[in-house]
Design a protein around this nucleic acid. Structure first.
Length: 566
RNA sequence: GCACCUGUAGCUCAGUAGGAUAGAGCAACGGUUUCCUAAACCGUGUGCCGGGGGUUCAAAUCCCUCCAGGUGCGCCA
């Protein structure tokens, strides 16, 4: 792996033995402006150690430095030591690396032998799959890809919301007002109607609530009728969800949802009791988390039935036993920060030191322009509608701009869906955002189609060139600022991927491939590629190839297709 | 009331584990196409980085405090 920073820190270490090599590596930064240098080492911190002014220290280090074969020159500016990497060496190494590693450029084996669980999407059975679910779905899927790319053995779990008192309600509603035919033909809509109807009726007939609690109890006890209905609801809902997952091309390794853990909860509660961490309070069982500054966690209701957190505890323990995870990642909304804090503390109190490997990856809420989404009030934007509309719009654009394009449907799908996913993954996940049709259907500027378009352009040039990529090119022909800027971005890509993993933040990759695309479009505009001069053409084609390669890797990590034409 | 998150250009947002003159996109205005895809490129303008203190050689970034918005706090998930 090329790593200029690492090589630099090795050289610097020889002159600054007072610091650890690792420390030096962390201190190396990239100057705000490439004219200042390729890499910089700030000497301010050393001032205290050496009792000298930073610029003098920089000067001393520069004098003792062995430039080796890769440092062209060193400049001192203020307290900074600025390094200029030998251009030809830089060009050769970066492009050589991409040519060598191809679709594995930026991947690594740091995760080798480690199991990482990513729990994401997790929609509720019998409820619509709406725009609010898209974030967990695409963030989770992208994290899954990123961890896998870095060598982790990754497990995607869809923790379906397929259990809980809501199913008692649904059973009661179905038995009172349900119609088998309707549920069969249009499951989610019919079940949602029943759910809404239940709440309306329950306002005047509170006994319905009791009835539904009883039915849920029956379900937990394995009552035949209850289980049968529940299985049916689950099955028809899942069919609808799978349609969306197919469109998004997302797969899961496990659909073990909440119900899967229903028979594993008594054992968990026993463990807690043995540990003596459960207390009675107002008829319910709770765990006091006062010592951690957290409100108490409710484990069991007054009627003895369990709650969400108990299932999550059972799930975590089951996963540890089954997968022996290195990390157990929950891609769940920021509303549940407290829930996961409590869960981790309970695991801690139960003596599981691996609770620290359970990480909640929260994200902000999706709102609508006219307020928050409400399933019950019908104020909801269906994910499938968004995806379909994006594909339709893409088809219109293609018909206008590129009417002769082959397999229009396939490309329209790739670009339309890509636009939606890209938009979802372009901001820091913690930020709340407001869904607007304008935004998802905007295909210009920092968008998915922009990056895909850039990829298609690069692909098209390569195809037109008609020759194989020749790694025996003359690097000096690529030593202009516009081309170098592309190579700097490409050189950073592996670090960017690692950063995205460390922070569980796919948007870092999204932002970076925009930068690469921008740099390439500038290049594309300024430099004709398929020129007479064979040497120049050969060299530029290598750049085009590298850009296409890295864009396609980046898009794949986000879960977006990279069409060759569009 | 308590806890957590957010506050950067008209709008949407970046800002790399404190660092050099705070950057993109959109919107606005102007320009580029007999030439490899104009979903592109180039140019023009805008900032009390929510306010106030503090730490530091250096703060959008760390600490304190206040303000604004959001979220969460026992029988939902």
């Amino acid at each position: 792996m090329i790593n200029f920073k690492k090589r630099l820190s090795k050289e610097l270490f020889k002159n600054i033995p007072q610091l650890a090599e690792e420390e030096i590596l962390m201190m190396i930064e990239i100057p705000p402006n490439s004219e200042m240098g390729d890499f910089a080492f700030p000497c301010f911190k050393l001032a205290k150690v050496f009792k000298k002014a930073p610029n003098i220290i920089a000067d001393d280090i520069a004098k003792g430095l062995d430039k080796g074969d890769f440092i062209d020159r060193v400049e001192i500016a203020g307290g900074y030591l600025n390094f200029f990497i030998d251009r030809e060496y830089f060009i050769e190494t970066v492009l050589g690396e991409v040519l060598l590693r191809k679709e594995t450029y930026g991947s690594s084996l740091i995760g080798d032998g480690k199991n990482v669980i990513v729990e994401f999407s997790s929609p509720n059975i019998a409820k619509p799959f709406h725009i609010g679910h898209i974030r967990t779905t695409v963030i989770g899927s992208s994290l899954y890809n990123i961890y896998k790319f870095l060598g982790y053995n990754t497990i995607a779990i869809n923790h379906l919301g397929d259990y809980g008192t809501q199913f008692g309600k649904l059973i009661v509603a179905f038995k009172n007002w349900g119609n088998e035919e309707e549920v069969r033909t249009n499951p989610i809509a019919a079940l949602l109607d029943l759910y809404v109807k239940f709440h309306k009726e329950a306002e005047t007939k509170p006994e319905l609530e009791d009835e539904s609690r009883q039915w849920f109890k029956k379900l937990e006890n394995g009552d035949d009728e209850a289980v049968k209905l529940w299985e049916w609801f689950r099955e028809v809902s899942l069919e609808e969800f799978n349609r969306v997952y197919d469109i998004l091309d997302i797969t899961f390794d496990s659909f073990a949802g909440e119900s899967f853990y229903s028979d594993k909860m008594p054992a968990v509660i026993n463990m807690m009791e043995e540990r003596g961490i459960i207390e009675k309070s107002d008829g319910a069982d709770i765990v006091d988390l006062e010592p951690f500054g957290l409100p108490p966690a409710l484990i069991k209701k007054g009627d003895g039935s369990t709650l969400y957190i108990t299932r999550d505890l059972a799930a975590a323990i089951y996963r540890k036993e089954t997968y022996d995870f290195y990390k157990n990642i929950y891609v769940v909304g920021s509303q549940q920060i407290l829930h996961f804090q409590q869960m981790k503390k309970i695991l801690y109190l139960m003596g599981f030191e691996w609770e620290k490997d359970c990480v909640h990856v929260p994200f902000g809420m999706v709102g609508l322009e006219d307020g928050t989404m409400s399933t019950r009030e019908g104020r909801v934007v269906f994910l499938e509608d968004v995806l379909n509309k994006a594909v339709e719009k893409t088809r219109d654009i293609i018909n206008e701009k590129n009417p002769n394009l082959e397999n229009l449907d396939e490309i329209a799908k790739q670009v339309g869906i890509g636009a939606v996913i890209f938009e979802e993954l372009s901001n820091n996940r913690i930020k709340d955002y407001t869904f607007t049709w304008d935004k998802v259907l905007n295909f210009e500027g920092e968008t998915g189609p922009y990056v895909q378009y850039t990829h298609a352009r690069a692909s098209s040039v390569l195809k037109r060139a008609g020759t194989d990529i020749d790694s025996n090119f003359k690097p000096e022909l690529l030593a202009d600022d516009i081309t170098l800027e592309i190579l700097r971005e490409i050189q950073q890509f592996p670090e960017i991927v690692e950063d995205a993993q460390r922070k569980n933040e796919p948007s870092i990759i999204t932002r970076h491939i925009i930068d690469i695309a921008q740099a390439f479009n500038r290049f594309y505009h300024e430099h004709p590629i398929l020129v007479e001069d064979e040497e120049l053409k050969k060299a530029r084609l290598v750049v085009v190839f590298a850009v296409k390669q890295v864009l396609s890797i980046g898009l794949a990590l986000l879960g977006i297709k990279a069409p060759e034409k569009m």
